[in-house]
Design a protein around this nucleic acid. Structure first.
Lengths: 110, 110
DNA sequence: CAGCATCCACTAGGATACTG
DNA sequence: CAGTATCCTAGTGGATGCTG
């Protein structure tokens, strides 16, 4: 059942596969953030990519976007309830990636 | 510790992120395969990408490549011991992706 | 059989400038 | 503040032809 073609692994990679998406996810796990906050917390991201990735994550239902129609405008991004189901998955991925980085470090040092 | 910048999630996405890499992984979990077998089992992959992805996976230590210097040449690809550590990770990813696909199907049907 | 080389199309992402 | 619009580049992947 799992080893079918069109494997859903690709689905997850598509959802998290943008260059800054994992970083955005970690930030939003910690607490809700405004657009400007994310820009500061992820210094190298361009406005274009931040905006685009947030919209991707919103479309997938991972991220909620709350608009406060004040002046100046305030928009708050938060992890949706559904988005929280991604956390354990991301932690497993993270653990493997961390170990893999160590492994590559060791082999290059030997 | 996990929520650092330069998150290792990206490492894993890089390792599995090629278009056909998850599919190659599933095939090699099942049993060792020759180049030609993989071509038949993954009909839409081009030789170029199959070759390139296999070399990527080999460089990361996921896949072993065994050459039998016969005529005609025979090359067998297998999942390395280290590569097997990817299986549980891939299954978690797969489960989430499967659920996500269902979710998207339902919302488009409603 | 198991590939490599070449050329081409498409997309992801970056830089810069502008707006409600 | 929170974006959008435009232009540009580098990398991914596909198609085709050739080789030890």
């Amino acid at each position: 059942m799992i080893h079918q073609r069109e494997c859903p692994v690709e689905t997850l990679i598509h959802v998290l596969g943008g260059k800054w998406k994992p970083m955005i996810l970690w930030q939003l796990i910690e607490s809700n953030k405004r657009f400007n906050d994310l820009e500061k917390l992820i210094p190298d991201v361009s406005q274009k990519m931040l905006s685009q990735h947030l919209r991707d994550l919103e479309r997938e239902g991972i991220v909620d976007r709350t608009i406060y129609p004040t002046i100046p405008p305030k928009v708050e991004y938060s992890l949706s309830e559904y988005g929280k189901t991604l956390i354990p998955v991301a932690e497993v991925m993270c653990a493997w990636g961390e170990n893999h980085n160590k492994r590559k470090y060791k082999e290059s040092a030997s």
